[in-house]
C-alpha cells in the first residue's frame, strides 16, 4: 500500500504541536554543567598515557601504528648496521700497545725537557694498583713552580 503524502497532512500538522513543548526556561543553561559534574564526581574522567597523548591517532588508525612500527624497525636496523661498521673499524684501529695519544698531534702544552716520559699502558700492566701515578716518585717541580718562585727566610727587626 502506497501512502499518499496528503493522507497524513492533518496528522503532521497536529504532530507539529509537539515541537512547541518546551522544558522549563533556562533548563539547558546548566544541563551540560550537570553532565560534566557527574562525570567528574563519578570519577570517569579519562586519563590518557603519555604515549596516547603523543600519538592520539594510533588507536583510531591502525595504518598509522604500522607506519610507526616500520619507522622504528628501520631505525633499529640502521643502528645495528652502523654499530657493526664501527666494530670493523675498531678491529683495524691501533691496539693498546700503541696508545691513542701517540697518534694524536702533540699536546697543547710543551712539557719541559726535565719532565718524565709517560709510560705506555703495556708497561703498567704489572702494577697491582689500578691507580697508577702518571709521574713516578715525587710530584714534578714544574707543576708548582710556574713562576720560578724561590723560598727565602724572612727576618724581622723589632725596635
Amino acid at each position: 500500500m502506497n501512502p499518499s503524502p496528503e493522507q497524513f497532512d492533518r496528522l503532521r500538522q497536529l504532530l507539529a504541536l509537539k515541537r512547541y513543548e518546551q522544558p522549563p526556561p533556562r533548563f539547558f543553561n546548566h544541563f551540560s554543567d550537570k553532565v560534566i559534574a557527574r562525570i567528574e564526581t563519578e570519577g570517569l574522567v579519562m586519563r590518557t598515557s603519555l604515549w596516547g597523548r603523543l600519538f592520539p591517532d594510533l588507536d583510531a588508525k591502525p595504518v598509522l601504528a604500522c607506519v610507526y612500527g616500520l619507522v622504528i624497525t628501520g631505525l633499529l636496523v640502521i643502528g645495528l648496521g652502523v654499530s657493526q661498521s664501527l666494530e670493523s673499524e675498531e678491529s683495524n684501529a691501533p691496539t693498546l700497545d700503541t696508545p691513542w695519544f701517540a697518534q694524536t698531534p702533540g699536546p697543547a702544552f710543551k712539557l719541559p725537557p726535565t719532565a718524565p716520559v709517560v709510560r705506555s699502558l703495556s708497561e703498567q700492566t704489572d702494577s697491582t694498583s689500578s691507580v697508577i701515578p702518571a709521574f713516578p716518585g715525587t710530584a714534578p717541580r714544574f707543576l708548582f713552580d710556574v713562576n720560578q718562585l724561590k723560598v727565602e727566610r724572612a727576618s724581622y727587626s723589632v725596635r
Binding site: 551540560s32 554543567d33 553532565v35 560534566i36 562525570i39 567528574e40 574522567v45 579519562m46 586519563r47 590518557t48 596516547g52 597523548r53 592520539p56 588507536d59
Partner: peptide
Amino acid sequence: AKNGDLEAYD
C-alpha cells in the same frame, strides 16, 4: 574529548 579534554566534551 577522547584525550580527556572535558571542555571539548562540554
